[in-house]
Amino acid sequence: MVLVRKSDISVVMVTFGASEMVQKSLDVLRPTTLNTVVIWDNTQDGNEAGALARLTGDHVTVFSDGSNGGFGAGCNKGFKKTSSKYVAFVNPDCLVTADQLLALAEDIEEYGGQVGAVVPRMVYPDGQIGISGGPRVSISKELLAATRIDDVLPERIRKVAISAYDRVFVRGSGYSKVYESGGLLDTEWVSGFCMIMRSSTFQAVGGFDERFFLYFEDVELSNRIRNAGFRVAIDRNVTAVHFESVTTKNGKGSAYWRGMATYFDIKKFPVRSRIAQLMAGLA
C-alpha cells in the first residue's frame, strides 16, 4: 500500500467576501500539517483583503489579481500556486480536517488511481445530510426542486420520495444512495465544496471550465474526469460540515440557473439551456 502523507496535500480555497468563514475553516483544517493552503481572493475590497492578509502565516498564502472570473477561474489560478501530489478544493464554508482530507486521498491510492476525484459526505450544521454528488443532471428534477416541496416534507417522507424518484428516473446510483451508510459510492458528478484529486489528474483534464462563473463547474469537471476513464465518488465514511450559501438555502438563485444554462449549452441541450435561462430571469 502506498503511504499518503498530509504533506502531500495542498488546499485551494476561493473566497469572495468570506474572510470570517475562511478563518473558521482554517481553524479546523490546521494548515501546518499540510503542504500548503492557497487562498484565492476574488474580491476587490480593501477591507476584505486586509482581513485575509492577517490570516497569512505558516503554510497559508493569499493571492489575488484584482479580478473576479468566478469560482472555477479562481480555483485554476490557485492551483498554479501549488506543487503537491494532491490538490483539494475546499469552500470557505466547509469545515474539514486534514485527517479527513488524508482519508480521501487514501481512497485514490487504495484503488490504484482509478478514482479521479472523491468528496466526503456533506453534513449541514443541524446534522442533516446534504448532496455532495449524484446522478446525471435532470432539468425535471431541478424544476421539481425549485418548488421547494422537500422543505415541507418530514425527513422520512422526503427520503421515501427521493427513493421513488430514483427508481423511476435514475440509472445507476441515485440521490437516495447518498443517504445510505457505506463506503465509496460512484456517482456521475461530485460537488466542488470539498473535492480532492491528484494534481496530475486535474492537469490532464484541463482544470475547471472558466465559461462557468458559479455553479455546475464541478459537474462539468466531473464529466470530463469520467470521460478520461476515472471514477468520481463520495466516501460516505468521511464527513465534512457545509454551511450552505444563503442564496442556495433560500431557494435557487439566478446564478444557480445561469450555471445550469451554461452546463446544458456546453452539453448541446438548447431547450434545457433555454428553460434554465428563463428560470434565471424569474429567480
Rank of each mutant, 00 (worst) to 15 (best):
V219S: 05
F212S: 12
E217R: 03
V219C: 12
T201P: 02
R226K: 11
F213K: 15
F216V: 04
F208W: 13
F213W: 13
F193L: 10
R226W: 07
G229A: 02
F212K: 11
Y215V: 08
V219L: 05
G206T: 09
F208Q: 03
T201W: 10
Q203K: 00
I225W: 00
G229S: 04
A204K: 06
E217Q: 07
I225C: 04
M195K: 14
F202Y: 15
F213A: 11
Q203W: 02
G207F: 06
D209Y: 05
F193S: 10
R211N: 11
T201G: 08
Y215S: 10
R198N: 10
F212G: 08
G206C: 03
L214F: 13
F216L: 08
A204E: 05
Q203L: 12
F213N: 14
G192N: 07
M197L: 13
L214V: 15
T201K: 08
D218P: 01
F212R: 07
G207I: 09
N223H: 12
R226A: 05
F202S: 11
F230I: 02
Q203S: 06
V205I: 07
S222C: 01
T201V: 15
G229D: 06
N227W: 08
M195F: 08
E210C: 02
V205C: 03
S222I: 00
A228I: 09
I196L: 14
R224N: 12
E220G: 05
A228F: 02
Y215M: 10
F193Q: 06
